[in-house]
Write a protein that binds this DNA or RNA. Sequence first.
DNA 1: GTGCTCCATTTTTTT
DNA 2: AATGGAGCAC
Length: 786
Amino acid sequence: MKSFTMSSSSQANQTSFLEGLNPKQKEAVTYSDGPLLIVAGAGSGKTRVLTYRIAYLLQQFKAAPQEILALTFTNKAAREMKDRIFQLIGDPAHSLWMGTFHSVFSRILRVEAKKLGFGQDFTIYDTSDAETVIKQILQELNYDPKQIKPRTIHYKISDAKNQLIDPDTYAKKFIGSTLDNITSKVYTIYKKRLKDSNAMDFDDLLILPIELFDTDPQLLEKYQNRFRYILIDEYQDTNHAQYKVTKLLADKHHNLCVVGDDAQSIYSFRGADISNILNFKQDYTDAHQVPLEQNYRSTKSILTCADSIIKKNEKQLNKTLWTEKDYGEPIIVLENFDERDEANRVAQYILKLSQQAKFNYNQFAILYRTNYQSRVFEEAFRRHKIDYQLIGGLSFYQRKEIKDVLAYLKLLVNQFDETNLIRIINEPSRGIGQKSINDIRRASREQGLRVWELLEQVEETQVYRPAKVRIREFVNMMNEFREALTTKKVKLHELTRNVLDKSGYMKMLVEEQSHESLMRRENILEFINAISYYEKENNKTSLSAFLQEISLITDGDKFDESKPAVTLMTVHGSKGLEFPVVFVVGLEENLFPVGVKDNFDVDIEEERRLFYVAITRAQERLYFSHCSNRFKYGEEQRQIRSRFLDEVDTSVVRTETGATLRQRSDRFMSTRGANSNTENGEANPNENIVSAQKRRSSLGTTIEYDSAGKSPSHKSYSSLGSIDYDLNEGMDPFVVGAVVVHDKFGSGKIISRSGSGTQTKVVVFFKNRGQKKLMLQAAPLSLIKD
DNA sequence: GTGCTCCATTTTTTT
DNA sequence: AATGGAGCAC
């Protein structure tokens, strides 16, 4: 064990770093043992307090570095904290237990896996892996994944897991609705399937430690003793499982310090339970509370604006953020015709500000509600030669080619990993088709053997004969790789190259000769570089550890504040960051606040908190922007300005011309306001189409009698003499009110029509399938005459 | 068993 | 606009 020393030796100097803190901050840093709740408003120096507190604990010899556990939600936050503590205390910082909940507990699980019946080399399934498993199970149970969405089931299972409800309890408690019954069945199989695959999903990384500690009190005590001090960042975002596992760990020493801000709770969709922070003082009756209310980040205008928004929320702890700063510049609202207009305008502002006001590119951030909004900004910035960094969206490790390579490697480490085995058994295609794969899987269930075990004895299994040979070749190939891995004959990056060569994966990409496949090859090379780098950095290279580590990496990690580039990210991604100039874009109804989901109402208060988070990222200048038209689903939509713009304090807001913002206070009186423009049964945001007129082709639509001669059928054809419905509206029998038959959906009635020419769409209400929107030209619809 | 074409759906946010 | 599934031809 390394002993801890500060760089300076005198006691007076050792505490000198406390001098820059305000009284409340100092109190939070130096408050000694016992539970501590720090309610830290935006920009109040929260990370500083946390890092100083850790340094202080070490300096007072309250704990050794390895006895301190600091938990964050994102890798980004963890990294920042690590960096800052390293600056304070140097090398001992490396001995701290610090990271995201998921990474810290996966490390513990790696050590304790055997006690739970898992192998040390378990695979971590991400959301898409989990949905693949669920889809497979739905098919085995004869449910159509088109009607029962794997995503919905996964969401429900994840929800149950975070509430610590196991499949048996779920089966007892949640009988009734069809969806719950299906979820119950799938959940039971899903849990078993993952265990058989020696795999854990993200939720397991939190709930399995609880299971472990519940069943083994001695082990719990071991970890309780190890983590004598526990600190949790963003406590308002903890879900029940996270709450429970940290409560268990802190139960002996009670040295639990949590930092949070209920106003910034934006992850309830992931099960975050705001009551964890609201009830902290009931939970720990001896808890001490320190409020941090002085904001060091933003101008008074920005803070006033933020405050005016958050005040509209009813569920809210009272607190008053204040600043010593001046009002500064007013907040400017940009009104745009459409999203391209919006992106161009923002680009122009950035150019102007960077010249006039001497802002560097890395001082700007564009914040949006959804990832897909980034595209137009990328295009505009490229056009205007503005460097940018895009954070989030499809991450590197989610790309198909990377997931494929990873699947090979994961399979080498853990041959029971069924999902990744199926993923690559025929990728590149080697003559093992869907039929053979299904046969093997069925046999696997029937015989109680794992898929890999069956493959090993494929000769004795009922499979399409030609496929047997291919499977044998595949199995032998993988066994050779595994041999190379376990005997450590080759370095990891060499092994990866071998896998890509001998499997034919690279060959497949080379032969494809498309721009797409070239990109894929480049990504793969980048991945191999990442492995080489990892090998250089770590002397004890374990493929298994590497794979587990990167399973928990996201794109947020690549944010680099020193890179001279404008940052593009979602509001969620921006939490914890700050920028001198912030553009909050797409402030439109059904976008921000987000539009209705299938069955759930939008949590408008959470959307408002999200807007609050966006505002409070800004230090000096803040811009709001919205469009009156926007392309969505390949169609232009009419957009209504966000209600949030009717809620801001207009004394600090101006339009581009300097005028006061006009507001309507009565626009959304009901909390269900998000639905108010789509009250027509099934939500159908596509209804307000403004322009389908510009695009017109020679493709036309007409009515023909098919050879069976029963009823007129609707066909499309391409010819010069096509009929244009714009001019011949009367030719089209598919009018509102018409009764139609769809090949798949059965009979229904047309309830509305939109677009024109080839872009004509109809909304049909089907008796058995509900409302659907269809392209008239393409849909297999026929008219019923009566 | 593979690959192409047509159709339908998708968009919240993240570990 | 882009992705994925179903159905069909080879």
